[in-house]
Simulated scan of single mutants.
Amino acid sequence: MRPVLLLVWLWSLAPTAMNIKVAPAVPDPPSAPSLAHCPKTCGDVSISYPFGVGPGCFRQGFDLICDTTTKPPKLFLGNTTTQVISLFPSGTVLASIMYTIPMVPGVGTYNLSWESPGRNLNIATYNYLAFLGCGIGVYLYHPDTGDLVGHCTVKCASMASMLLVTEGGGICNGMGCCTVTFPVPFRGFRVTIVKNNETVPQPFANITIKAFLSFRPYIFSIADLLSDKINASTVGASSAAYLSTVITDNPNCAKARSDDKTRYACGSSNCENVANGGYYCTCSGSSDDGNPYILDDCKQGDFN
């Protein structure tokens, strides 16, 4: 080919070559130094990535809010009323999820629901929902399929009979309190509470329904039953449940590793699939000190 023609031919290819876009490399998980500017605590709760407070300090969907108007400050999951009690480097969250439901004359059905922000937390199956009330039936539904997956009933008798129930430490067995469990990990729950057509003796008629998620056994108390509200000061340590982190931007580890559009959360740490979709990261070894969601941070807990 003559030099002039070769030059024209190369020139005609230039726009095509210039328009070729190379996909940017997906960045690794952040390093500890890159998160050095982020708040490390809120009150007495330590904060670990992928959770974080403020821009550049959390993975998308894992933002936290530190309420500094309280003493001590309180940490919450995103813009919700779900308080974070403890946060572990492995991604496990100990959270307080509770409800107060006033009984309204003439109303026979009440609904409540909860969903983890970004659907990135699973409720472990060893947690349960406890309900305090009188003359009600509780129905737990799968948050995605709508299938009924749990049911319990609460009755109340005379004060004398109720006092007998609580002697020696009452258990939550359907008298003033009942529980429903989770057959599989859920990202949330839906509950319907139905008032039964039965006479409830005083002083238990039309009392406020209380509900909370917990992993510890609850010791039933008539004082809790008669209270107009429920909080950590009434049911104590029972008012907290363990939630596990799930990365949901890909359905499994294999897809996450090959996806060049989303940041792979695990970097060099181990990846485990989650049965109801998504994946989570773990460190090798027996220590829980390392953070598998930070680049090379598993070295702290790697004993293999």
Rank of each mutant, 00 (worst) to 15 (best):
A124L: 15
V26G: 00
I230L: 14
I219T: 14
P73K: 10
H151K: 15
V165N: 04
A95Y: 01
P72G: 11
T69E: 15
P30E: 00
L6S: 12
Y128D: 08
R59G: 03
K71H: 13
M159A: 09
D147G: 05
G174A: 04
Y49S: 05
N291W: 01
W11Q: 10
Y49M: 06
S48P: 00
K155N: 10
N196S: 07
N197P: 02
P251F: 06
L243C: 01
Y280C: 02
I65V: 14
D144G: 06
W114Y: 12
V149C: 06
G174V: 03
P30N: 02
D44E: 10
P39G: 08
L64Y: 05
T192W: 00
E198P: 03
I20P: 08
T81F: 09
L140Q: 07
G188T: 07
G174D: 05
T81W: 08
N196W: 02
L10G: 14
V107Y: 09
P201Q: 12
P217W: 04
M162Y: 01
C134F: 05
A95N: 07
G54T: 09
Y264A: 02
N291K: 03
P183F: 10
S96F: 00
T234Q: 14
T166M: 13
F215D: 11
A241C: 13
V165C: 01
T153N: 00
F58R: 01
C156A: 14
P89E: 02
G118S: 08
N120M: 07
E115Y: 10
K299Y: 04
T92I: 04
T262C: 07
L77M: 14
A275G: 01
N111P: 01
G277T: 05
K40G: 06
K229C: 12
Q300Y: 10
Y280T: 10
A157S: 12
F62P: 00
G170P: 10
N19D: 12
T100I: 10
T16D: 13
Q60V: 04
L132R: 02
R257C: 06
Y264L: 09
G108L: 08
G118I: 11
I85F: 02
S239M: 14
D147R: 13
T234S: 14
V26A: 07
A157T: 10
P50R: 03
V138D: 03
V138L: 07
G133A: 11
G174M: 01
C298I: 04
Y110I: 02
T69K: 15
C266R: 09
W9G: 12
R59Q: 12
G170W: 06
T145Q: 09
G146R: 10
F186T: 01
P203D: 12
R216Q: 14
M159C: 01
P55Q: 13
P117A: 11
S238L: 12
N120I: 08
D289A: 09
V107A: 11
I171E: 14
T234A: 07
I193F: 03
F88R: 02
D144S: 12
W114G: 03
S284Y: 01
N196K: 13
I219D: 04
Q83E: 15
C134G: 12
N173C: 08
E198T: 13
C283H: 04
P251C: 03
F76H: 11
T82H: 11
P185H: 05
N111F: 11
R119N: 10
Y139H: 13
L7K: 04
L164T: 13
C271S: 08
K255H: 09
E272Y: 08
W114R: 09
P39A: 15
T248L: 05
C156Y: 00
K210Q: 08
I207A: 02
L6E: 11
T69R: 15
